[in-house]
Amino acid sequence: MARTGRLVLPAVAEDFGFAPIFVHQDPVAEPAPFADVLDVIRGEVTLRLDAATPAARIAEIVRALNAAG
Rank of each mutant, 00 (worst) to 15 (best):
residue 3 R to P: 06
residue 24 H to C: 09
residue 22 F to G: 07
residue 60 E to P: 01
residue 69 G to F: 09
residue 47 L to S: 03
residue 62 V to Q: 08
residue 21 I to H: 09
residue 2 A to N: 10
residue 54 P to S: 01
residue 6 R to C: 14
residue 64 A to D: 04
residue 9 L to R: 05
residue 14 E to S: 14
residue 59 A to I: 07
residue 47 L to D: 00
residue 45 V to D: 07
residue 17 G to T: 07
residue 22 F to P: 05
residue 37 V to T: 14
residue 21 I to P: 01
residue 11 A to F: 15
residue 36 D to A: 15
residue 8 V to Y: 11
residue 47 L to N: 00
residue 3 R to N: 15
residue 33 P to D: 03
residue 13 A to R: 15
residue 37 V to K: 13
residue 36 D to P: 10
residue 49 L to W: 01
residue 4 T to W: 13
residue 4 T to L: 13
residue 43 G to F: 08
residue 22 F to W: 07
residue 61 I to W: 03
residue 52 A to Q: 14
residue 18 F to C: 07
residue 47 L to I: 05
residue 6 R to K: 13
residue 5 G to A: 02
residue 35 A to L: 09
residue 65 L to E: 08
residue 20 P to M: 03
residue 2 A to W: 15
residue 48 R to F: 01
residue 64 A to R: 03
residue 48 R to S: 06
residue 23 V to R: 07
residue 50 D to Q: 02
residue 61 I to F: 02
residue 43 G to H: 06
residue 42 R to A: 08
residue 8 V to I: 15
residue 7 L to E: 14
residue 33 P to N: 00
residue 32 A to C: 06
residue 40 V to Y: 04
residue 50 D to F: 00
residue 57 R to G: 00
residue 29 A to N: 04
residue 20 P to K: 06
residue 20 P to Y: 02
residue 45 V to C: 03
residue 50 D to K: 03
residue 38 L to H: 02
residue 25 Q to K: 09
residue 13 A to H: 08
residue 12 V to R: 08
residue 9 L to H: 01
residue 66 N to Q: 15
residue 48 R to P: 04
residue 32 A to Q: 08
